[in-house]
Design a protein around this nucleic acid. Sequence first.
DNA 1: AATGAATGAGTATTCATTCAT
DNA 2: CATGAATGAATACTCATTCAT
Lengths: 215, 215, 215, 215
Amino acid sequence: MPSPASSRNEPRWTRRKEARPEEITAAALHLFVERGFANTRLEDVATLAGVSKGTVYLYFANKEELFKAVVREVLVARLAQFRGQLEHYQGSTMDLVRQMMRTWWEHVGSTPISGIPKLIISEARNFPEIARFYIDEVIRPGQETLAALIERGIARGEFRQVDPQLTVHLLTAPMLQICLWRNSLEPFSQHKLDPPALLEAHLDLLERGLAAPKD
Amino acid sequence: MPSPASSRNEPRWTRRKEARPEEITAAALHLFVERGFANTRLEDVATLAGVSKGTVYLYFANKEELFKAVVREVLVARLAQFRGQLEHYQGSTMDLVRQMMRTWWEHVGSTPISGIPKLIISEARNFPEIARFYIDEVIRPGQETLAALIERGIARGEFRQVDPQLTVHLLTAPMLQICLWRNSLEPFSQHKLDPPALLEAHLDLLERGLAAPKD
Amino acid sequence: MPSPASSRNEPRWTRRKEARPEEITAAALHLFVERGFANTRLEDVATLAGVSKGTVYLYFANKEELFKAVVREVLVARLAQFRGQLEHYQGSTMDLVRQMMRTWWEHVGSTPISGIPKLIISEARNFPEIARFYIDEVIRPGQETLAALIERGIARGEFRQVDPQLTVHLLTAPMLQICLWRNSLEPFSQHKLDPPALLEAHLDLLERGLAAPKD
Amino acid sequence: MPSPASSRNEPRWTRRKEARPEEITAAALHLFVERGFANTRLEDVATLAGVSKGTVYLYFANKEELFKAVVREVLVARLAQFRGQLEHYQGSTMDLVRQMMRTWWEHVGSTPISGIPKLIISEARNFPEIARFYIDEVIRPGQETLAALIERGIARGEFRQVDPQLTVHLLTAPMLQICLWRNSLEPFSQHKLDPPALLEAHLDLLERGLAAPKD
DNA sequence: AATGAATGAGTATTCATTCAT
DNA sequence: CATGAATGAATACTCATTCAT
């Protein structure tokens, strides 16, 4: 759990006002993931961000807008960053999958962003706009990219003739599971998940499971 | 979406009083999954169950207890039913996995119980007791059962030398994904998931991905 | 200032629930007139009505609706009662005016309803709906009735040829002044207004001022 | 509706600093009359006055003081101006009344000052100090002046033997009605009041209604 | 003098919970 | 057993006020 962004003794005007919104959304992401949207009091978000209740309303019209801003900011910011990573790749498709999954772990799975899926899943019904945004901006593009990857593998004779759509789900399911485990049940479990190991095991399974027949 | 358990015009005596708690938990499961715990008003649960607000308190001490009851009742009821299915099995391990997954779809994945994981994931932090209960009663036993299954496969030379713990996660991840998709984002997506097909593709991948080397 | 409608020791269920809305609107009228809409806390309305904060929301969706209900109830209830009084009158027009004004004092001017004009005038801009309602249901009908009265007087040769529209304003102005004085400045003034005497002086002035030339 | 006192593009030094308080009270008068005291945000006053929120506090200790300043400044400024008009008058009393009323329309009724009565009436209970100030500085002196006028008319045999106190109310009521109509309900009504015509009709009524018997 | 970012007291509103019937 | 009117704690949100610049 992060500590308040600034001590009370620090003069408030030394803080860069441009940084405020980010500090607030970071605090909000943390608390929304931890307690859920409805159970997060804006005052707690403010305290965690090191500001007062009123300041949150200086930057976000209301709690819902803060929620949307959290999701948008975190996702949009990282989405671009994530996309470029897979372009212009030359090697084997399996290597590409492997690299994709490691990049994901580095930039998403191991960061606070991994809390977003839990948030979306929990609040989708109450935030249809967010749900559609997430489907349109994250899930569908991601699935298309991965489906293209599978197709590339099939076309190059590396993978057997699988259904690309379905295979995409099989590709991503363990990553989702990692996100959710880390952000909800893990604190109550003795069993500590080792995500990198799981991803390697997953890659292993995929490599063998997707391999085209030898002859 | 279930309709109220009884019409107001229906004579009262046709309602079996013993059925009340189940009608209430069923309504509660539906609404908790749809709106989340905090956003579900007890009055709506009552209305959906066809009883008055006060009646809910006749059977459940408070909202939290209702929540726990929903989870416990739904799970405990089905867990026993689910367990026996895998014992005393003679055939190949892969057939066992195949049967397990189909049974799951029939008794869990395609039923309202599939909403439970979303509920647990969303509310775990606010209901440590439920989180631990779910881990102890569902996740750990399930994982142990499945790990034993993997080990059986390895011991019988059917599977290659995989890490049973990790493989269990790979086994279950697509099932979790199905549950969550169906109960949160699906209503907002054009893309309709075909869970049985996905499970078959998953079994296919597992069969090849776990197969012991030919020689 | 009225005291709370019921003592805390009185069992709450002895109160007739049908009376609640009226008790609440009565309390609200009193406080809205005294403090203005914005300065009246719903909790104070509740206390004065002898109920709790939540109960107000049982009967009125929100503060604005309570405001509208106060105005509508008080006005609509008395409007019908007031109308019949002037129909089927046979005598001289001036007698009719005289009777009208005395009826008004008895049923409006001397009662809490006299607070309504202050309320409307103060909040018209913030409640356009109320403003229009008041104009349509009170002011215009009232003006039309009175204009017809003036015209009757002119037609019967009792009044000189005045402009009926303008004269209506002259007829009503002192009544408005009474309402406003009683409900805003009077408490701070040494000068105690004697409304009946003022109305008589007004009638006197009207009688002479409107009289048709002798020949 | 006044536009901001200065455009943002206008060079700052063209603004006379000494004019600030007046610009602010003018903006405040406008908004207080339009929305009421509680519903007027100081930020809007500042914006309308073309200054920043903080600047308002440079000149007025708080919102209440601003309110009092608005009332005092507007009234005090005009009261002196208004008083001299009636002194040293030689003609008939009715002419004096006539002149007084026309002067009033010119300097008060047709100007933003006409919004003051609505303000006072609406906020008297919340601003006893203002209420007393208004009674002491406006109402009582005004009433005394007018009562003296009536008495002059009676003494000179122009008016019949009326009660001067009561007659003052009859004299002023239409003016109050004009102020209130213009500043609260008029925007919502089809009926456009013609104040000068109303005042003339009023004067007409008064002339005949107050006239001493011919013999 | 002027600014506007920041604060936090004050209120409307919701809804879990109670309890007399 | 069942009801639903009543309660009041909890929280989102507003806006007067402050103060470092």
